[in-house]
Design a protein around this nucleic acid. Structure first.
Lengths: 114, 114
DNA sequence: GTAACTGGTTACTTTTGGTAAGCAAAGATA
DNA sequence: TATCTTTGCTTACCAAAAGTAACCAGTTAC
């Protein structure tokens, strides 16, 4: 039951790298959090994340969709609206987001203000 | 006791962003893990992380040092050797790495092979 | 003596990212 | 009725980052 070409390597490196391939980068986790907190529409998400540009948001949403972390729902009333929602995979990131959140609260101050 | 200009925002976004500013990006966490697992020297770290180039490693190590996540120790015997070691801040990332690790083990398969 | 290792730097190319504008369809404002 | 705004994006352009590869001086093993 091979997962991958791990050879003799039994470190945390590859599983962490797998995770980073999906949610690494500057914006993906922030986008997931934003949708989590109630933003469903493109412009809502864009406005909720400072410095995130339309172009990059469009690209990141596509990648997140490809990786099954969110759905793009076309709501067919008039006019058509688009709604982004999280998948169960994305929701399972809750503990990941939780630890990053509390690490940020605890350590940012210490590192920047010492 | 203001932390930052949060205005009305009380979401997880900014603390997570703070964390990502320090350990986000493709390589930083992997480098921390590599050192954690016993690699102390430049070439050791480089070889332990597939696809990581010397140039990028040099840059990332500088940034990690600046952000007090590791120390660059010059060992003054002959010849001079350089040793990279983690700070306590980096060690406090243990739970972060742990959650990313187990998320990777659980979800990578589901997302890529479905 | 020459090949390989150390911890990197430098020059060059390619890829990614940011800025700003634009677009079609619809709604609100004047 | 005109025009201004909002929606969900795309496109063109330029700057910044990242990848590739060669190179360097000092050391050590063959």
């Amino acid at each position: 039951m091979k997962k991958r070409d791990h050879k003799e390597c039994v470190s945390a490196l590859l599983p962490v790298k797998d995770t980073l391939d999906l949610i690494g980068g500057k914006w993906k986790l922030l986008i997931i959090i934003s949708i989590w907190e109630g933003n469903k529409h493109f412009r809502e998400i864009e406005r909720s994340i400072p410095k995130l540009s339309t172009k990059v948001l469009a690209k990141e949403l596509k990648e997140l969709e490809m990786n099954k972390l969110l759905h793009r729902n076309v709501i067919d009333d008039f006019p058509v609206r688009i709604e982004y929602t999280l998948t169960e995979h994305a929701k399972s990131l809750k503990t990941v987001i939780g630890t990053l959140h509390s690490w940020g609260l605890t350590h940012r101050k210490a590192i920047f203000e010492k």
